[in-house]
């Protein structure tokens, strides 16, 4: 029992040091990996996502998606609401994308650009990981509202990523992402993202709401809410275009 207590104290101390001293030894890429662990489960999972997009003087547009994710490169997004769009789905398989529309009843190959269209990029909905897609460097460490933060710059490693560059604020004590700024490959500032409402999803505290604000148009923003997240083993074949109508 004493051993367990001692081990516990050591672990806690390491955890404490982690936030203050040892964490400084973590590389930027290691921090990003820990951020990814907060954002997404490492295993295959299914999540229910609600997206609402707001534009000035325009009616809001709300959608709900059933999202299935396997590994880092395979995602299928099925639209469940609104009823008018129910049955549509999007398959992302590394750099290859297909859309399925019930009225055509067949998968249609689409481009990366089409995948990125819309107020909320499908990459945002899919919660794909930063690590592996971006190389990171620590820009600075800062204190905001009494909390220590890493400010990271992430640069895209391949053309198929949703963004060219990301600036990311991460809480040092628990690696929670708090804010991000997204830039296009051209360097154009696209939007900010605020990671909010942390709650237990798939056994861990994770941000359950993302608020994405357009960088140019005031009052134009979208929210992404993750209602539940379930770790499930998903067969590889579910991420093929032939499976989109199943």
């Amino acid at each position: 029992m004493k051993h367990i207590t001692l081990v516990g104290i050591i672990v806690l101390s390491l955890g404490f040091l982690n936030t203050n001293g040892v964490a400084a030894e973590l590389t930027a890429d290691e921090i990003v990996k820990k951020v990814d662990e907060v954002r997404n489960p490492e295993l295959d999972y299914q999540t229910d996502v609600r997206v609402v997009s707001y534009k000035p003087n325009r009616p809001e547009h709300a959608s709900r998606y059933d999202v299935w994710i396997k590994g880092r490169d395979k995602t299928i997004i099925k639209t469940t609401e609104p009823e008018n769009e129910r049955g549509q789905s999007l398959l992302m398989r590394e750099n290859d994308f297909w859309a399925f529309f019930p009225e055509v009843s067949k998968p249609i190959r689409i481009s990366l650009q089409q995948r990125l269209n819309g107020d909320v990029a499908n990459g945002d909905v899919a919660r794909t990981n930063f690590s592996g897609d971006y190389s990171a460097k620590i820009l600075s460490k800062s204190k905001i509202s009494g909390k220590d933060f890493y400010v990271l710059e992430l640069n895209s490693l391949r053309d198929s990523t949703t963004y060219g560059k990301v600036k990311l604020w991460v809480m040092a004590e628990n690696f929670w992402p708090v804010k991000a700024e997204f830039f296009a490959i051209s360097g154009r500032f696209l939007k900010t993202c605020s990671y909010e409402n942390y709650k237990t999803l798939a056994g861990q505290l994770r941000p359950s709401k993302l608020v994405l604000k357009d960088a140019i148009v005031d009052g134009q923003y979208s929210t992404i809410e993750y209602n539940e997240m379930n770790i499930v083993e998903i067969p590889e074949k579910n991420f093929t275009k032939e499976y989109m109508n199943k």
């Binding site: 909390k147 600036k167 809480m171 708090v178 804010k179 909010e196 942390y198 505290l205 960088a215």
Partner: peptide, 16 residues
């Protein structure tokens, strides 16, 4: 707008 912290929202746990 870039790098502004005006809209910085500190995380809140809403677990239930």
């Amino acid at each position: 707008q870039s790098s502004s912290l005006d809209d910085f929202v500190m995380p809140v746990v809403v677990d239930e």
